[in-house]
Amino acid sequence: MGDLEGKKVLIVATNRFEESELFGPRELLMARGATVTLASLALEAILGTVHDAPGRTIEPDLLIADAHEADYDALLLPGGVGNPDRLRTEATAIELIRAFADAGKPVAAICHGPWLLVEADVVRGKRVTSWPSIRTDLRNAGGEVVDEAAVTDGNIITSREPDDVPAFTEALAQALQS
């Protein structure tokens, strides 16, 4: 039995997610006993990337529109450039992120994933980090930007890049245990 047995984590992603930022945390969380569910815009395989090159695909478990914050203990938002850029125009995705944040549940975003936190207006007054190219967006949204592998401020967890997946996942695991 793992230390995250009974915990349920929802990942929200669409095409062009950064492969290691979805598969890495997913596998680490599942190995520790968490149940991990993937929600997307359609019930068709979504394509990951390794930087900009096409990567592996994965089948979503449900539609974002059918996901409810009350059914999960935490939300995970992988990066990749295309994935959060597409999702930030989807009202259902932004409303779901806001619901998790408002409920005080952990919301973890890595790399370009914090763009979604900006869109949901949940970084104001929070210490956050991200891929360097979106740090100005985080500052403009009221976040205090730092350069650390994983940053936890209240229920918001952010991370910089694929190399930080272990620290990012550990920060989420710690939040789930508290």
Results as ranks from 00 to 15, higher is better:
Gly2Thr: 02
Asp3Trp: 00
Glu5Gly: 03
Lys7Ser: 02
Lys8Asn: 12
Leu10Asp: 03
Ile11Leu: 11
Ile11Asp: 07
Val12Arg: 05
Glu19Thr: 14
Ser20His: 04
Ser20Ala: 14
Ser20Pro: 01
Glu21Lys: 04
Phe23Asn: 09
Arg26Ala: 10
Arg26Leu: 15
Glu27Leu: 11
Leu29Arg: 08
Met30Asn: 08
Met30Ala: 15
Val36Cys: 08
Leu38Val: 13
Ala39Thr: 08
Ala39His: 07
Leu41Val: 08
Glu44Asp: 15
Ile46His: 12
Gly48Ser: 12
Gly48Cys: 11
Thr49Ser: 10
His51Ala: 14
Asp52Pro: 01
Gly55Pro: 13
Thr57Trp: 03
Pro60Trp: 09
Asp61Ala: 08
Leu62Tyr: 00
Ile64Met: 04
Ile64Asp: 05
Ala65Phe: 00
Ala70Arg: 15
Asp71Trp: 04
Asp71Val: 01
Ala74Lys: 04
Leu75Tyr: 10
Leu76Val: 11
Leu76His: 07
Leu77Asp: 05
Leu77His: 04
Pro78Asn: 06
Pro78Lys: 06
Gly79Arg: 08
Gly80His: 03
Gly82Ser: 11
Arg86Cys: 03
Arg88Asp: 07
Thr89Met: 11
Thr89Gly: 10
Glu90Leu: 01
Ala91Val: 09
Thr92Leu: 02
Ala93Gln: 03
Ala93Lys: 03
Arg98Gly: 09
Arg98Cys: 00
Ala101Arg: 01
Ala103Pro: 10
Pro106Glu: 04
Pro106Met: 01
Val107Trp: 03
Ala108Tyr: 02
Ala108Pro: 05
Ala108His: 06
Ala109Ser: 04
Leu116Lys: 06
Leu117Glu: 02
Val118Pro: 07
Glu119Met: 05
Ala120His: 12
Asp121Lys: 13
Val123Thr: 08
Arg124Ile: 05
Gly125Arg: 07
Lys126Val: 01
Arg127Leu: 10
Arg127Thr: 12
Trp131Lys: 02
Ser133Tyr: 07
Ser133His: 10
Ser133Pro: 08
Asp137Ser: 09
Asp137Tyr: 00
Leu138Lys: 03
Leu138Pro: 06
Gly142Tyr: 10
Gly143Gln: 01
Val146Lys: 05
Asp147Val: 13
Asp147Ser: 14
Val151Ser: 05
Asn155Leu: 00
Asn155Ala: 11
Asn155Glu: 07
Asn155Cys: 12
Ile156Cys: 05
Ile157Gly: 12
Thr158Pro: 06
Ser159Asn: 09
Arg160Met: 10
Pro162Lys: 08
Val165Glu: 11
Val165Arg: 06
Pro166Asn: 09
Thr169Asn: 11
Thr169Tyr: 10
Glu170Ser: 02
Glu170Leu: 04
Ala171His: 11
Leu172Asp: 13
Leu172Tyr: 10
Gln174Arg: 15
Ala175Cys: 12
